[in-house]
Every structure is written in structure tokens, then in C-alpha cells.
Amino acid sequence: MMDILDILISAGFWAATFRIVSPLIFGTLGELICERAGVLNLGIEGIMTMGAMSGWMWVYMGGDLWTGVMFAAFIGAMFGLLHSGFTVYLGLSQHVTGIGITLFASSLSYYIYRMLLPDATTPPKIDPFHPYPVPFLSDIPIIGEALFTQTPLTYLALILVPMVWYVLYKTPVGLAVRMAGENPMAVEAQGINVLSIRTGAVMVGSAFMAVGGAFITMSAFDAFFFGMINGRGWICVALVIFASWRPGKALIGALLFAGLDALQVRVQQTAGAVIPYQFFLMMPYVLSIVAMVIMARKASYPKALLTPFRRGERT
């Protein structure tokens, strides 16, 4: 028990938590934006893989890190456009399309990787983002090391949470996005094009997801290998429900999951001799399910989620 307390007050634990949480924040915010507009995007797992591959490949081919992030975001937005083409314009099943996008985007990432680097046996490396200690703030004990000695993408993720909140709740376009997810007919009746709003939201959301993927290859690690997204996309989908579609709560949920993940690695080291390590690997997921069950009962989901909107059709 004392061991766990020791871990909880150590700067290393919190630093790890904020590192683990970054891709989850990008992914969760991205999914949240899509769903707020009424479109479930199960392509997230594939789009994150694609973002991880394309951002990394951009840098490996000689681009610099920030344009790599932008390239990954652009590729993500393109997959978002593909997803909305099927679900928003053609009104096809959002579940089936999303799963299809995930399969397509993951396979395509591996294919492109192999095609461009046919001879690589050990994964080649790039020079990734380095931690950037924020002047003065990083000198604060514990907090400084935990929160202000991270890579720039982590800062970006944390800044995005209030920004997404502001846009969704304080600007006209955010109102239109939320309304499109609640009652698209209300948007149409006020003279705004529902299809454009939804497509825009899905593209922006998908770009966020891809940046989340890029974080993993360009900030957390320095190489791309198969299966490295490892279900993070699905965790993000669950976190959106956990958060009741609210950005602030999404941050809390993501921190909770990341904290548990960081904790289990450390507990493994102290108690690993007694309990098999797989048990600890499982813990964040089990606790997430428990948290989900408790939170999801109170969740108020967007009313028009999963409902396609077609103009000029008889109702």
C-alpha cells in the first residue's frame, strides 16, 4: 500500500501519465467533435495508425517535425472526408463505414510503410520531439518535472482541451456543430447546410485523431511498427461516452486511464513476483469498464448521433 502512495507522489509517475495521456486527448477530442456533430467515427483506430505512419514517414523522408504533424493532420482530414462521404452524404451505416475505414487505413499504412521501406529489418528511427522544459515553470518541484518538462505535442494536447470547449460552446460554428448532432432539421431550418457542418466536423475531428497517432511515432517513440496504436482508438471512443461528450470531462477520463496505465507499470515492478504481470496490464481496462458502467448511465448523448440527414426528403 505504501508503495502505491510512494508512486503516486513521485514526479516520474506523473510525467509518464501526461505522456501516456497525450495521444488519448487528441483522439478523444477528435471523436468528441465528430460525435457532437452526429457522426460516430469508428475509423479512429485506423486514422491514428495512418497518422502515426504518415507523420513519421514525412520526417524520415527528410521533412521537419512540425510539417510532419501538419501532414499527418492533413491525411487524417482526408480520411475524415472519406468517412463523411459515405456516412453524411450517402447516409450509410456509420458503424460499418467506420470499421471499414479502420481496416482500410491500418492496412494501407502498413502497405505504404513496406512499399517505401522494403528492406528495413529493424524499424528505422527518426529524431523525435524532445522534451521542452517551460522556463521557470519547470523549476517547480514535482509539478515542474511532471507537467512542464514534456514534449511540445503534449502541451498542444493540453491547450486543445479548453480551445475545443471554447469553440463548441462559445462560437456560432460550435453552436451549429452541437445543433447538427442534436437536431439537424433545426440547423437546416435556420438556413445552414447540415452536410457541410457535419463534414467539416468529421474532417477536423479526424485530423485530431491523426495527430494523436503521430504523437506516438514522433514524440513517445521514434519509430513506426505494426500494431503500435494497440487499441488506443477504441479507448478514445469509450472515453467520449465516459465524458458525456464534454471536453473537460474527457480530459479527466483520459487522465484517469493514463494514470492507471502508468501505475500498473510501476506496480508490476514491485509486486510482479507475486502476481503475474498480465494482471496489471489488464487493470486499466477493467477499471475503465467499471468507470464506464457508472458514468455511461448518466451520459446524455447527442440526440441525432447515428442519424443520417437527407435534404428534401419526405419524412
Binding site: 456560432p172 460554428v173 451549429a176 442534436e182 433545426a186 435556420q190 440526440k303
Partner: peptide, 26 residues
């Protein structure tokens, strides 16, 4: 069939579409 979003406020329902979508505040 009313074209209102039930989870939003009266003001939000009325304001939708009255301002330029790209302005930074309401």
C-alpha cells in the same frame, strides 16, 4: 414537428444561424 434541439437553451436555439459562422465569439 418542432425544429428545436432539446438539450440546448432557448437562446441557443434562436441564435443559431443569426451570426456569421466564423466569428470568434457570440
Amino acid at each position: 414537428h418542432f425544429t428545436l434541439a432539446e438539450n440546448l437553451t432557448v437562446l441557443e436555439n434562436i441564435m443559431l444561424g443569426t451570426e456569421s459562422l466564423w466569428s470568434l465569439s457570440q
